[in-house]
Write a protein that binds this DNA or RNA. Structure first.
Lengths: 213, 213
DNA sequence: ATTAATTTATATGGATACATATGGCAACTA
DNA sequence: TAGTTGCCATATGTATCCATATAAATTAAT
């Protein structure tokens, strides 16, 4: 039997990622208890967990709010994300198996299909699949965990992904180059290509931040 | 006023790091409530937090136990630690301020002093200070947080650090080279020197694991 | 009229009471 | 004697209750 708090964590994450709960929104325990038809205890545990996860923050006696990252924090986050994504590419190059290669190729095809018809949400999904495929191929579970946590954090700030015209095409080409480097077991290139790819996204942050304010 | 659960988290961490609570040990909520003279509620929140942190793990209805990392998990952890430590060195090279330089130098002196008299616990402490100084110098708060969490995890498995004779000297020399690279703003060298330094420690893990079993 | 202080309301933090699932032990049967 | 079943004990999971701190509102004083 799943614990109520575990389900709550998932639900609240969904609401945050979907944008239903926006950065700065306050979460009141009593309200949530009514909404989800449980007592305050599991609500509190869920909030606690999300605070540890970094999605919420609390001030003493002032409850939890959806965490707002300022420009520096987002930049720091992106720097680490870029480094770890690059690392995943390097490891994937060194450890690539046939089955992982197939999965990466499949996700790359998804990216291509979505880019061709300019399906923005479709590309966003395929993009995540592509990155996830590389994470898996790194064969480092700790790294994979860290990256999925970071992804989650970043996605909150990606409510309008790829809205810039033409970015889809460029992103796809970068993905293809990264894949080629991995398949050629050229870890060094794969690493730096991915880091550049990530940093380009990071460079788009300032405009994204402005759009949020 | 600090929350009871926050203090508990620190205390439990201490007990885990100090080896008082060994991997595999069970934590019973009622016991802990009596020991720390609080109710089960803050105990549960603390446990919850440590589970999210990865220090404990729970099985349904079976409570929390101190998490045991197997060889692969430890290896994965070290790989990520090495990469991020290297990244910190690179960033420190790029962003070094005079004040950070002083702090790094000071911690390096501590290392030297401890190494000269073969003060093993002293060196362990100075070592942490050295790494922390570099983390700070990276000017990336997210990275610093991640590294301190990873440090915490690794330290559990470092109950007998530097017991290998001669390792102190070698470690010190590596520290000196890393510092020189950072001071020379040679990010590339600093990065790889630190990664090698970390990986050497990781290579000692198998014997460490054997000692634990 | 504006500001400061006091009071009141409300939400969080902690304690306790209650429910339920799991594991062990014992008894009974084959 | 060994295995299975059922009961009981114990620890986790959930609900509710109480205390306290913070914030808001109202009143009084300048």
């Amino acid at each position: 039997m799943a614990r109520a708090s575990d389900k709550l964590i998932e639900q609240l994450k969904q609401e945050i990622f979907s944008g239903l709960l926006k950065p700065g929104d306050q979460l009141e325990e009593a309200d949530l208890a009514v909404r989800f038809n449980v007592s305050r205890t599991p609500i509190r545990e869920a909030i606690r967990s999300l605070v540890d996860n970094g999605l919420l923050e609390t001030r003493s006696r002032k409850g939890a709010i959806v965490r707002v990252l300022n420009a520096k924090e987002l930049n720091d986050l992106f720097e680490v994300a870029a480094e770890l994504e690059g690392m995943a590419c390097r490891l994937a190059s060194e450890r690539l198996t046939q089955s992982n290669k197939k999965i990466i190729k499949a996700s790359l095809d998804l990216c291509q299909a979505a880019a061709q018809v300019e399906d923005i949400p479709g590309y966003a999904e395929a993009n995540l699949a592509f990155h996830a495929a590389i994470h898996e191929a790194s064969e480092n579970d700790w790294l994979t965990d860290q990256l999925s946590q970071i992804q989650a954090r970043i996605n909150v700030y990606r409510l309008m992904p790829y809205e810039i015209v033409g970015r889809l095409e460029k992103s796809l080409v970068e993905h293809q180059k990264i894949s080629e480097a991995i398949f050629a077991k050229d870890g060094l290139s794969a690493n730096s290509l991915m880091r550049d790819h990530m940093m380009l996204q990071g460079a788009r942050l300032p405009s994204l931040l402005r759009a949020l304010v």
